[in-house]
Amino acid sequence: MKKLQFNSPVVLTFFFISLAALILGTITNGTTTTVLFSAYRASLTDPFTYVRFFGHVFGYASITHFFNNMLLLLVVGPPLEELYGSKTLISGILATAVISGLLQFILFPGSMLLGASGIVFMLIMLSSLSGAKAGTIPITLILVAVMYLGQELYSIFFIQDNVANLMHIVGGVCGIGLGFVLNRSK
C-alpha cells in the first residue's frame, strides 16, 4: 500500500489556508474574506490593515476563482519548491503578497484585491527562469513574458472586468526579479 506524501509543504499549506479562508468566507457570508483576506484602503490604525497586506492572497470571491488559482499553484509550485527550497518560496510569496497588497492600498482606494493570481504569475515567471545559466536570459522567459504581459496589458485597456491585471503584472515582475537574484547566486 502506498503512503501519502506531503511533498510540497509551502504549496500545500498555502492551498489548505486558502481552502479554509474560502470555507470561512462562505460560512460568514463574506465577512472574513473582507476583514482578513482582501487588500483595500483602510485606516492605518486598524491592525487588520497590516494582516490584509499579505492575507489577501488567501481570499477568494468564489469556488471558480479558487480552483483557477489553486490548479496552477499546485502544478507550478511543487517543482519550484523542490528546486529552490521552502524558505526561498515562502520569501517570494511573502514579498509578492506584501508588494501587491501595498500597491493595491496606495493606487486603488476604491477596490479590493483578493486571490493568489499574483503569486501564481510570480511562480510562472520564476519557472521560466528556473533552468537559466548565470548571465543568460532564456528565450522561454522572453516568450512567456511577451505572451503574459501582452495578454494582461490587452485586458487592462480593452476588457472591463473585476480582474486585477496590474497586480498580475506585479506578480510576474516579482517572479522575474526573484529568478534573476537566484540565478545570480548560482
Results as ranks from 00 to 15, higher is better:
Arg52Met: 00
Phe180Cys: 02
Val173Asp: 01
Thr45Gly: 05
Val57Met: 09
Gly135Ile: 01
Ile142Met: 02
Val181Arg: 13
Val170Pro: 06
Leu73Gln: 04
Ile124Pro: 10
Gly85Leu: 09
Val146Cys: 13
Leu149Thr: 14
Gly171Gln: 06
Val120Glu: 03
Ile137Thr: 14
Ala116Trp: 05
Tyr148Gly: 13
Thr49Asp: 12
Tyr60Phe: 15
Tyr60Trp: 10
Tyr60Asp: 04
Ser62Leu: 13
Ile156Glu: 02
Gln104Ala: 03
Gly77Cys: 05
Leu83Asn: 05
Thr96Ile: 00
Ile63Tyr: 09
Val57Asn: 01
Phe37Ala: 00
Gln104Glu: 15
Val51Trp: 15
Tyr60His: 04
Pro138Asp: 01
Ala42Lys: 04
Ser111Phe: 14
Tyr40Glu: 09
Ser100Pro: 13
Ser111Val: 15
Ser38Thr: 10
Phe158Ala: 09
Ala97Gly: 12
Met125Cys: 12
Leu103Asp: 09
Ile124Asp: 06
Tyr50Lys: 00
Gly85Val: 06
Val173Lys: 12
Leu71Asn: 09
Pro78Asn: 08
Phe121Pro: 07
Leu94Thr: 07
Glu152Lys: 13
Gly110Thr: 11
Asn69Asp: 15
Tyr148Ala: 11
His65Arg: 00
Leu166Lys: 09
Val98Leu: 01
Val144Pro: 05
His56Cys: 09
Gly59Arg: 07
Ile63Ser: 06
Ala145Glu: 08
Leu113Trp: 02
Cys174Asp: 01
Met70Thr: 11
Leu182Cys: 01
Tyr148Arg: 04
Tyr40Thr: 13
Leu141Val: 05
Phe157Ser: 08
Ala42Tyr: 04
Gly150His: 06
Ile106Asn: 05
Leu72Ser: 12
Phe58Asn: 00
Ala145Val: 14
Gly77Lys: 04
Arg41Tyr: 15
Gly85Arg: 01
Leu182Gln: 03
Val120Ser: 02
Tyr50Trp: 06
Leu107Thr: 02
Ala145Pro: 08
Leu36His: 06
Phe58Pro: 07
Phe108Cys: 02
Gly175Phe: 07
Leu141Trp: 06
Thr88Gly: 00
Leu166Asp: 14
Leu166Cys: 10
Ile159Gln: 09
Phe58His: 03
Ser117Pro: 06
Ser38His: 07
Gln104Trp: 03
Ser86Ala: 03
Gly135Cys: 00
Leu114Phe: 14
Leu178Lys: 03
Ala132Asn: 04
Ala61Cys: 10
Thr96Asn: 08
Gly55Gln: 06
Gly177Trp: 06
Ile176Asn: 00
Gly92Pro: 08
